[in-house]
């Protein structure tokens, strides 16, 4: 039993590490945003997934945020975007962001959500057309 337990432990961790796609989900999400205009971001203590979103100047970005646990915030630093993401089971919130200049826009949780709150950040990378 003990040996089986350790084998299962190691294989679970190794297989989980192996599921990381080479391009990452953020890349897929960014690609999908042309066909599917809604970028779905999942929030949980203390992570946004995806935490990197790519778009181009002038493209309207529809971002739907849903929490897996408590109330979070979604604030894009340097813009007027700052919304509350309702807690699990209370629905989602949608944000529209249309960048007019290229650059890196940092977003973060703006509602204190626990001990690792300040880790909870991401970036929208806006490239010129």
């Amino acid at each position: 039993m003990r040996r089986s337990f350790w084998l299962v432990c190691v294989s679970v961790v190794v297989s989980a590490l192996g599921t990381a796609p080479p391009g990452g989900l953020a890349a897929q999400q960014g690609t999908e945003s042309k066909a599917e205009p809604v970028v779905r971001i999942r929030a949980e203590r203390f992570t946004f997934t995806p935490s990197e979103v790519r778009t181009t100047v002038g493209t309207r970005l529809d971002i739907e945020l849903k929490s897996d646990d408590t109330v979070h915030g979604f604030r894009i630093i340097g813009t007027d975007v700052n919304v509350e993401v309702p807690k699990r089971g209370k629905g989602s919130v949608r944000v529209v962001f249309t960048p007019t200049t290229p650059g890196r826009y940092t977003f973060e949780c703006s509602h204190t959500c626990g001990a690792g709150h300040s880790f909870m950040r991401g970036v929208i990378i806006v490239e010129a057309k």
């Binding site: 989980a16 990381a20 989900l25 999942r42 992570t47 997934t49 935490s51």
Partner: peptide, 10 residues
Amino acid sequence: EYVGTPGLTT
């Protein structure tokens, strides 16, 4: 840690 796949943290 890797947190790039929804639902997975390793």
